[in-house]
């Protein structure tokens, strides 16, 4: 897919990170031509600040923030929750990812809202559906599910349920939820 991306951006980014944040990078991961860096969660904001401020890298476009739940595979992954930041450099035409693993009991990471306005809704969605808490977010409230909802639906321990529809022949039965 990456036919026109500028050559050498992969190495350039690696060197840039190694020179400045060598201790904060856990590992690099390349799969299907896409480069990701697992970083320590506490270093996220400082890395992004330096990255946005550097005109040479020109990473100003935050394409997406998402998260996934690795329940049952915490040991292989190094934490239960994974937060994935999808960046794009407009001049270099290069896409790369930052990933941070968060523990099951306290999934917390710094908010990127001071740098990117778009992070606001993306982080609210990650909070709503996955329960990742973003410190420093101005308005961390539910966005897609109702305000009085309990739990975070995209977590693996949130059951998929099925509510039996009520018809004329079963309207007197108590409402039934199948888990």
């Amino acid at each position: 897919m990456s036919l026109v991306r500028s050559v050498g951006m992969e190495d350039k980014l690696r060197q840039w990170l190694q020179a400045r944040f060598a201790d904060e990078i856990v590992r690099e991961y390349i799969f299907c031509d896409q480069q990701s860096f697992y970083i320590k969660p506490e270093a996220l904001l400082s890395i992004c600040q330096a990255m946005v401020a550097d005109p040479e890298l020109d990473v100003r476009y935050l394409a997406d923030i998402t998260s996934s739940d690795w329940l049952g595979q915490e040991e292989e992954m190094g934490g239960r929750f994974e937060v994935i930041y999808n960046f794009y450099s407009l001049t270099h035409k290069y896409r790369f990812f930052f990933r941070a693993m968060l523990p099951a009991d306290q999934p917390e990471i710094d908010s990127l809202t001071p740098l990117f306005n778009s992070a606001n809704w993306m982080e609210r969605e990650a909070w709503d559906l996955m329960g990742i808490s973003f410190t420093g977010h101005p308005d961390l409230t539910r966005i897609l599910t109702p305000d009085d909802m309990e739990g975070h639906p995209l977590r693996k321990d949130f059951p998929l349920t099925y509510e039996v529809p009520q018809f004329s022949w079963n309207k007197d039965d108590p409402p039934e939820v199948i888990r």
Partner: peptide
């Protein structure tokens, strides 16, 4: 500037 910062597409 805003369009990029708000990740519009």
């Amino acid at each position: 500037e805003d369009a990029i910062n708000w990740s519009l597409s």
